[in-house]
Design a protein around this nucleic acid. Structure first.
Lengths: 152, 152
DNA sequence: TCTATATAGATGCAATTGCATTAACCCTGG
DNA sequence: CCAGGGTTAATGCAATTGCATCTATATAGA
C-alpha cells in the first residue's frame, strides 16, 4: 500500500523539468548536427555502438537492447545506413535468421565528424553549466530512475 | 576561450543518462496511457495548458511557447483535438489572423482521466524512487541546464 | 522425427513529423 | 494612404514512426 496515485509536487516538478530539459537539449544537439550537414542523432547512437563493438559487429537485436529503439525502427535505420554505405550486413554462420552488422570505414568517418559536433554540444549544453561534482550527482540521481535492466 | 570542444567524462555520462532515462520514462508513461485507452502525452500537455488558462483560452502561439512543440505540430494537434471535441477554436476580436483555443467540457474530462493515469506513472516512476529532497535537487540541477528563456 | 512455439528481422499501411511554403492579416515608415 | 516587412496559422509533400503482421529459421517437447 505504499503506492500513491497522486504524485508529490516535488515529483511533478522533477518530472516536468526532466521532460522539458531533455527535449530542449536533444533538439539543440539535433539542430547543431543538421546545421553541420550531418545525419540525425539516431544515426550516431547506432554508429557509436557499432564502433565500440569493433570488427565483430553486432546483431540487430543487440542494437535494440543497447539503443532502446523499436525493432522496426532499427530495421529501417540499418537499411538507410547500409544504403549510405556506413554499415554492412553479414550473414551469421550459426543462425540463418540473423545477420551481423558491422560499421564500415566511411561509417567510422561519419561518426567521427558527428562526434566533433555532438561532443561540442554536450560540452556546451551540460559540461559548461554544471561542475564535475554536480554532473556526477545528476548521473547518480538519474541512475536511480532507470527502469528494469540497466546499461549506461 | 572557456569553450571546450570535447566534453568531460562526467558531462558525457550525465548527458547519456539524461537522454536514456527521459526516453524510458516517457515511453513508460505513454504506454500506461495507451493501455488505458487514452490519448498520447502530447494531448495532455496541450489540454493541461488550456485547462490552466481557463475560459479565456490561449492563442496557438502561446501554446507553442509553453509546450515547445513546433508550430505545424500544434496546428495539426489542435485540429485533431477539435475534431474530437476536446477544444474549440474561437475567432479573436482584435487580430483577424488568430484564434483563441478553449478547452471544452469533454476536454476537461479527458484531461482528468489522463491525469489519473499519468499522475500515477509519475508517482511510480520518480516519486517512489527518490526522496523529496532528492527530487528537489534533481529539479534544481536540471533547471540550470535550461536553454535561454525559462518557464517551468 | 515432427509439431508447436519462440525468436530474428522485414514490411504494408496508416498516422505523425519535418520542411518549406503559403495565405491572411497586422503594423510601421514615408 | 500604402508599400514593405513581420507575425499567425495552415498545408502540400516527403520522410519517419507506430502498429500489426509476416516470413524464415531455431528450438523444445511429445
Amino acid at each position: 500500500m505504499t503506492e500513491k496515485a497522486t504524485p508529490s509536487p516535488e515529483a511533478i516538478k522533477a518530472w516536468a523539468r526532466l521532460m522539458r530539459v531533455s527535449r530542449q537539449l536533444m533538439e539543440s544537439a539535433e539542430e547543431a548536427l543538421k546545421a553541420a550537414g550531418l545525419p540525425p542523432l539516431a544515426w550516431y547512437d547506432v554508429l557509436h555502438e557499432l564502433a565500440e563493438a569493433g570488427e565483430g559487429g553486432l546483431r540487430p537485436f543487440q542494437l535494440i537492447e543497447r539503443t532502446l529503439f523499436a525493432q522496426y525502427n532499427i530495421s529501417r535505420l540499418l537499411a538507410r545506413l547500409e544504403a549510405d554505405g556506413l554499415v554492412e550486413k553479414l550473414p551469421v554462420a550459426d543462425d540463418g535468421r540473423g545477420q551481423t552488422i558491422r560499421i564500415t570505414a566511411s561509417g567510422r568517418e561519419i561518426r567521427r565528424q558527428m562526434w566533433a559536433v555532438y561532443g561540442r554540444s554536450i560540452a556546451e549544453l551540460v559540461g559548461a553549466k554544471l561542475s564535475a561534482d554536480e554532473l556526477t550527482m545528476v548521473s547518480a540521481l538519474l541512475g536511480r530512475l532507470r527502469q528494469p535492466p540497466a546499461g549506461d
